[in-house]
């Protein structure tokens, strides 16, 4: 149980995991300020902003939801965009669930705390005890700080007034670029090239569709493009076509690795 492990734990691997968890929590929590400010700039009020941080609790999906709202997208586009961006959390859950061995309400709590950062810290630990400590401390730390700083950002954004005057509308694009950036590089050169090509094509497609379809649809069309490429693309590191082979599973694990924002 997480409550037993702490910075005072005699196990050095656990102590190290907790230290990592705390520094990741502070770094991630801080950019909750930008989420809160962007959310109210997009037209959500403070309670709605906090509902996203408390209930959705997944940075990329939250930024996407307010981005689509800000662009004038309908409820379907908001749900679909946030949901698709949150799909990777499901894959993280598949990875961390067997490492945590949680059951009952703890399993539900673990699921809610399964995000890029907690998965990254957990899977980087050398021992099972450190893995559990890393997951719970990162998940809980990010949750507390992310929500605290979301609230601060939302209140600040509310007080500032016209978001354009402070360049807050430009901050949204920069936030998405910062979330995308670490995904554009990786060890597998072929997979990385595919990701880059799809990213550029997705941006071009979204811009081309914007004048002709309702708000929110261009972003979903970009996701559809990625699904088609993913379905047609032959393979990853192994270059072979063997479905579910040993090498393929290894490459798959690499691709599922969570990417922590800078």
């Amino acid at each position: 149980m997480p409550a037993r492990s702490s910075a005072a734990d005699p196990d050095p691997a656990v102590r190290s995991a907790v230290r990592t968890a705390l520094s990741v929590s502070v770094a991630t929590g801080l950019y909750g300020v930008s989420f809160g400010a962007l959310s109210v700039a997009a037209g959500l009020d403070v309670p709605q902003t906090m509902a996203l941080s408390l209930l959705m609790f997944s940075g990329g999906s939250q930024f996407a939801a307010v981005g689509v709202v800000g662009a004038g997208g309908g409820i379907g586009a908001v749900v679909a965009t946030a949901g698709l961006l949150g799909a990777r959390n499901g894959l993280y859950g598949v990875q961390v669930a067997p490492l945590l061995g949680a059951s009952g309400w703890r399993r539900l709590l673990a699921a809610h705390l399964t995000i890029d950062e907690s998965t990254a810290v957990a899977t980087a630990q050398p021992t099972p005890a450190a893995t559990r400590a890393g997951f719970w401390w990162t998940g809980a730390g990010v949750f507390v700080l992310w929500n605290a700083f979301s609230l601060l950002g939302a209140l600040l954004g509310d007080a500032l007034g016209d978001p354009r005057r402070y360049g807050l509308d430009a901050a949204a694009g920069a936030a998405f670029l910062a979330l995308l950036w670490p995904r554009l590089s990786g060890d597998d050169r072929r997979a990385t090239r595919t990701v880059r090509v799809v990213a550029v094509a997705a941006a071009a497609l979204a811009l081309a569709l914007t004048p002709v379809v309702p708000a929110g649809v261009p972003v979903l069309a970009a996701a559809a493009l990625a699904v088609v490429v993913g379905a047609l693309d032959g393979g990853g590191a192994g270059a072979g076509r063997g479905p579910g082979g040993g090498a393929g599973a290894g490459g798959g694990d690499d691709d599922a690795a969570p990417v922590v924002t800078p």
Binding site: L85, R88, G230, D255
Partner: peptide
């Protein structure tokens, strides 16, 4: 059910495509 290479790869592509499209829409529309 979920840990198939193709599913994992496609999920990574969808994430990148959504973020790239959001960059474009937020910046130039």
């Amino acid at each position: 059910l979920l840990e198939r290479p193709r599913v994992v790869r496609t999920a990574a592509l969808v994430t990148a495509a959504l973020l790239a499209a959001l960059v474009a829409v937020q910046t130039a529309t």
